[in-house]
Design a protein around this nucleic acid. Structure first.
Length: 411
RNA sequence: CGGGGUGUCGUAUACCGGUAGUACGCAUGCUUUGGGAGCAUGUUGACUGGGUUCAAUUCCCAGCACCCCGACCA
């Protein structure tokens, strides 16, 4: 991608109507644009990162047998009435059509997925089953805040699993936990993300959240460093020691909830009459679990936890581009390098702007935060090649042009 | 939803009861190119409605929007 053609450009000033770091930096760097409180457009750079996050999640969900579907966002009132949530889910955006038919925008999808799978789950032979989607969710938050951390419209991966009994649900629940840790690892968040005990649903005593430690987090968690577990403050009264080793020396930290997993039991199966015949021909209720991750929230979270004073430092797995190529008045040479990088499959943002000052290009490269910066200048050529610098590090290296692709591939 | 704050060119800001200024941006030209460079010319603005006043962007009221604190967050 040539930066001269990129929609949009970076801003010199930070937006005055945003306080949260992720919103400030992502707006300044041209990743997102705010339409209204808690409602953002993903611009090309932001969308690329979002797509990479989604792809990682998609791969890990597929690897544990999840089958991707896409459910509607427009959900009829009757479905919500079946579970009592038309009245009880106060964050629902409700709307009426011209024919006075009423709908709610999807805030969660048990009301869709349960009757849908019910058409196909007839016998124990159809179980277990897991389906997921990555979709926009709508919640009428009383107060949107924290940029991408709590919005009224946001993306969510929601996986739903269906089992013949509680035991198979528990087994799968553990499998999902493992898959979630793989996701945090691929996103570079593993070291600061904790499996956290939180208030349970109707079915189990506790649910589990995945909390990423961040100063700006909305939640307070108490961490057992030895077990890498945490307890959400909301349940600390009833559970004040590590659930694993019973250690009471817990470390208090602020954190962002990046995922959660629930055992739903039969709450939704009963509401929609989701039953199956077991091997003995006896009718039984399907046992369900649900598992969420917020990709757009993760986009904001990574910006919150991975940056320095100059800008964002994207982990390679989700960076908008792997290489940011800067030309300092050496356009012909750089153009050739750009083509070589593309031919080698290295995703490159090429700052080809003739009118931009060197300083402006450096500042933008730091702000946007691609993992590798490659500078082509009279100076670097004199020294025998191009200058390569990692966004996360300090070392500059001069690499021969003929060996640049090889050098980058080796990293 | 309760409380507080803020609304001035595209962005960040200044001043002011009487002609709204600056910087950046943007446009044109020339110069410049290792950390947002320089000169010249040009371009663009008072959230909405009401009130007070000879006169309101400025004071008052209401609404709306955004931000913050709290409550809420299946």
């Amino acid at each position: 991608m040539k930066q001269s053609k990129l929609f949009t450009r970076t801003l010199k000033e930070e937006p005055k109507d945003e306080v949260s770091f992720n919103a400030r930096v992502l707006i300044r760097a041209g990743f997102i644009d705010k339409l209204a409180a808690g409602i953002y457009t993903l611009l090309p750079l932001g969308l690329k990162v979002h797509q990479k996050i989604c792809q990682i999640i998609r791969e890990e969900m597929t690897a544990i047998g999840g089958q991707e579907i896409l459910m509607p966002a427009l959900i009829p009132k009757e479905n919500w009435e079946a579970t009592g949530r038309w009245e009880n889910f106060d964050a629902l955006f409700k709307l009426g059509s011209a024919e006075l038919k009423q709908y709610a925008l999807g805030a969660t999808h048990e009301e869709v997925v349960t009757p849908t799978v019910g058409k196909y789950i007839l016998s124990y032979k159809d179980l277990s089953l897991a389906v997921f989607q990555i979709q926009t969710k709508f919640r009428d938050e009383k107060r949107a805040k924290g940029g991408l951390i709590r919005g009224r419209e946001f993306s969510m991966k929601d996986l739903y699993s269906f089992h013949p009994d509680e035991e198979t649900l528990s087994q799968y629940y553990k499998i999902v936990q493992k898959a979630y840790f793989k996701i945090w690892q691929r996103l570079g968040l593993l070291d600061i993300t904790y499996l956290t005990y939180a208030a349970g649903g109707a079915f189990s005593k506790y649910s589990h959240e995945f909390q990423t430690v961040a100063e700006s987090g909305e939640d307070t968690i108490f961490i057992c460093e030895a077990c890498k577990l945490a307890i959400n403050r909301e349940i600390i009264d009833e559970c004040s020691a590590c659930p694993n080793c019973h250690n009471t020396e817990l470390v208090e930290k602020r954190a962002i909830e990046v995922g959660n997993i629930f055992k739903l039991g039969t709450r939704f199966s009963s509401a929609f009459g989701l039953k199956y015949l077991d091997a003995a021909g006896e009718e039984k209720e399907v046992v369900m679990g649900c598992y969420g991750i917020g990709p757009s929230r993760l986009l904001g979270t990574i910006a919150e936890v991975s940056h320095d004073a100059k800008g964002i430092i994207w982990p390679e797995a989700v960076a908008p581009f792997r290489v940011h190529l800067l030309s300092l008045k050496e356009d012909e040479e750089t153009e050739k390098i750009y083509k070589d990088l593309l031919a080698a499959g290295i995703d490159t943002l090429y700052d080809d702007r003739a009118e931009a000052q060197a300083g402006e290009k450096f500042t933008d490269a730091d702000l946007i935060g691609c993992p590798y910066r490659v500078v082509v200048s009279a100076k670097s050529l004199r020294e025998g090649g191009v200058e390569v610098k990692q966004r996360a590090g300090h070392n500059l290296e001069i690499v021969k042009i003929s060996r640049l692709v090889e050098f980058l591939n080796r990293q």
